[in-house]
């Protein structure tokens, strides 16, 4: 059995961790943080959830998201309408932040997971794999689709006092997108990619 020497991310304690069986995880003895985990079929499962996420992302962005009816008038909003309106109102900073956290970071994250898992399944080790794996780790906190969804619910309740609000296809796709991208991130394990880049077979 192979033994790895791992330094804890949170407290720097050096610990010896034997090669984990699929489904096992190792926790730091000193501070309790996760040291390592081992998933089953990391590449295949990440690929499956990430490709579903990509399709749902496209549907969520090109079809109408919400409808708002007041005094006989109907207002249709797309996922990106808020960004355009904030930009038009002169709030470029807000438009950029909303676009980055609700559209750009999620799509790069999904596309990145798709590219990494494809490379692993095809047994390729292209030079961009290292850069992309590092980028994905940093980008994860900035993809805020689930916070955005909560914002959709809150704003629908707020507007519901004034007029009738109904949800369109894109909102359903968006909910499914959050579920599948969460599953993709849970299936994905950066440590498995680093081991693969070290020359091991994909787990």
């Amino acid at each position: 059995m192979h033994v790895n020497r791992i330094a804890c991310h949170d407290c720097d304690q050096l610990q010896l961790v034997h090669t984990l069986m699929p489904g096992e995880s190792a926790v730091c003895a000193r501070c309790g943080s996760l040291l390592a985990r081992s998933g089953r079929d990391v590449a295949e499962r990440t690929f499956a959830y990430a490709s579903a996420s990509l399709i749902l992302f496209i549907v969520a962005n090109v079809t109408p998201f919400m409808e708002f009816k007041i005094a006989g008038r109907v207002q249709i909003a797309y996922l990106s309408t808020g960004v355009q309106q904030l930009w038009a109102d002169g709030y470029g900073e807000l438009a950029v932040m909303v676009a980055f956290t609700s559209i750009l970071a999620p799509v790069v994250l999904i596309g990145g997971l798709l590219a990494i898992s494809s490379a692993m399944m095809l047994r390729r080790r292209p030079s961009w794999l290292v850069v992309l794996t590092r980028l994905i780790s940093r980008l994860k906190v900035w993809a805020m689709m689930e916070v955005f969804l909560l914002g959709v619910i809150v704003s629908a309740i707020k507007l519901g006092q004034m007029a009738h609000v109904s949800f369109d296809v894109a909102s359903l796709a968006f909910v499914a997108l959050i579920l599948s991208s969460t599953a993709a991130l849970a299936a994905y394990d950066p440590a498995a990619v680093w081991d693969y880049l070290d020359g091991e077979d994909p787990r």
Partner: peptide, 20 residues
């Protein structure tokens, strides 16, 4: 910390919806 973006998203959505 990321959940604090909630209010910003609510504002973006209200701005998008209410343009009558």
């Amino acid at each position: 910390g990321r959940w604090s973006m909630l209010d910003i998203f609510v504002i973006a959505l209200l701005v998008a919806m209410v343009q009558l």
